[in-house]
């Protein structure tokens, strides 16, 4: 398979490590509703941008930055303005 830049996205699965630094529950199975387009799906299926120190999870449909996490030394910054809601638990 040819690999192009468009192929080079990880997703919310790979963000699991950093998300687990912030959330005390399994975050990748949380159902997130995008504030941009209203699409709802597991956090694992958002597209991941960024590196180890800061990560942005974007809606695959409309590109809205749904979840932003950055780590500066022992402090985390979490920006959820792109998420209309999180559905946590429920047998996930």
């Amino acid at each position: 398979m040819e690999t192009t830049d468009a192929d080079r996205h990880l997703d919310g699965n790979a963000a699991g490590g950093m998300l687990a630094e912030v959330f005390r529950f399994e975050a990748t199975t949380v159902i997130v509703t995008c504030a941009g387009c209203g699409a709802a799906g597991p956090m694992a299926e958002l597209l991941l941008y960024g590196h180890g120190m800061g990560q942005i999870l974007r809606c695959a449909g409309c590109d809205t930055a749904v979840v932003r996490v950055a780590r500066v030394r022992d402090r985390h910054w979490l920006d959820l303005r792109g998420a209309r809601s999180l559905q946590i638990g429920g047998g996930q």
Partner: peptide, 9 residues
């Protein structure tokens, strides 16, 4: 689904 993204994070 899981996108493995060859370049990594």
């Amino acid at each position: 689904t899981e996108r493995f993204g060859p370049t990594g994070t």
